[in-house]
Structure formats: C-alpha cells, structure tokens
Amino acid sequence: MAETLLAATAVAKHFGGVKALRDVSLTIRSGEVYGLIGPNGAGKTTFFNCLTGLYVPDGGGFEFAGAPLVADAPQQAAARGIARTFQNIRLFGNMTALENVMVGRHVRTRAGVIGAMLQTAATRAEEAAIRQKAIDLLHYVRIEDRADDLARNLSYGDQRRLEIARALATEPKLLCLDEPAAGMNATETEALRDLIDGIRRDGTTVLLIEHDVKLVMGLCDRVAVLDYGALVIEDVPAVVQKDPRVIEAYLGA
C-alpha cells in the first residue's frame, strides 16, 4: 500500500445550525486520483475549503505529508503543497494566461522588492525561470497559443485548463480539482480526463470533486461519498458503485 499523503480526522464544520461536515475522516494516498462525490450540498466544497485553509474547521484537522496543516492559512497550504481550482473559475481575468501561471510560481520563488528594484542577476535569472516554467505549463495543458490573451477572453474549457496550469505552477503534492468538468461537453471532458490521467502519471496526487459519475468511476483509484456532510463510504469505484447507501443517496434509485 502506498504511503498516506493526506489524513483528515473527524473534520467538522457548521454554518449556524447547518452541519455542513460531520466528522469526516478519510485518507488520500500518494500517487492516486481520489474522487469525492455526493449530491449537491453534501459538503464537498466545504471539505475543500477546510483543506485549503479558506475555512477553519470547527472540529478535527488534517495531517498532510506527515505534519499537521495550520487552519485558516491558504497561503501556507499552498506552500506545503496543496493547490486547488475553484468550482466557479477564479482566474485573474485581466491578466494574460501566461501571467496567471506566472503568479502561480509566486510561492516557489523568492525575489523581493529590493531585488526587483536593483534588478540583480539573481532576480533576472529567477524571472526568466518563472517565465519558462509558465510557458512549459501552458504547453502541458495545451493552451500555449493563448498565452498572451487575457484570461477572461479564453473559452470556458481553456479557462478550466488555465486554472489547472496555475495550480500546477505551485508544484503541488496534492492537486484539488473542484468540479473541473462542470459545463464541459463530452469531447472536452474526454480531454480533461486525459489531462488528469497525465498529471497522476507525472507523480501528482489528485483530489477530484466531480458530478460526472462516469468520469469519476473511470478515472479514480478510490472514491469517497459524502451525503448530508457525513462520509458514507470510502473504497475503490467498483465497490462504491454497488453500495446500496450510495445508490440511494446519490446515484438515484
């Protein structure tokens, strides 16, 4: 069995009286694509937001790569190697595609104000490396020909890809994708599936929230199902698909 990359222990989150997450515990292993599915409002995105530091969990916590994650610190989560995309795409719309990915390099680079003002050799070398890495990533997600276009002028599918490229630019150990196939047609979904498959092959663990059951079942090594904020089951797709609770809760009777 592969080593555990992320362990969530009894993560709880409530908004007023609504219990969005009820003691969710799950483990993600290095190198796998891990699916998180569930009906609308099941708490998938809430779980994401707790994991990536946008929310502070009301109970429980995360252990990532052998050390606990600090709550309420998205920038630290990114520094530790957790990158994410958003369900409703959040790009820097008025920056070019290339600049969007270059921003993603921020957390892995050092140049400060003094370096920028003096244009030291180190700063210039770093800047060139940032640009090269960003170009490489645009090639990786196959939108290199849109590099100089404003992000908001990209097509929907390309925006999704750009968001993944930006997340990959932070060199994540765990890439969290929040409904990446939402709104995509069959061809685009197929291309996305290849992309995610490639990301796994290149050694990045992927956590995938998705509504497209076919995509999840075909792609994921293991799947967890959330319903009403609670974990229903966590297992390989073949088992999950046959579980009566899952069929009742999500797949539809």
Binding site: G53, L54, R84, V103, A111
Partner: peptide, 21 residues
C-alpha cells in the same frame, strides 16, 4: 516583478491569490 504580479493578482481576485500561496 514577482511582487508586482502578486499585487495585481490581489487586485483581481484576493481569494484566488491566497489559494496560489
């Protein structure tokens, strides 16, 4: 520069900026 881009990112979308670290 790296700093200037980060400022611009904050201007564009602060939550996304936080999420990329």
């Amino acid at each position: 520069s790296r700093i200037g881009r980060a400022w611009q990112a904050i201007r564009e979308d602060e939550i996304a900026a936080k999420a990329v670290g």
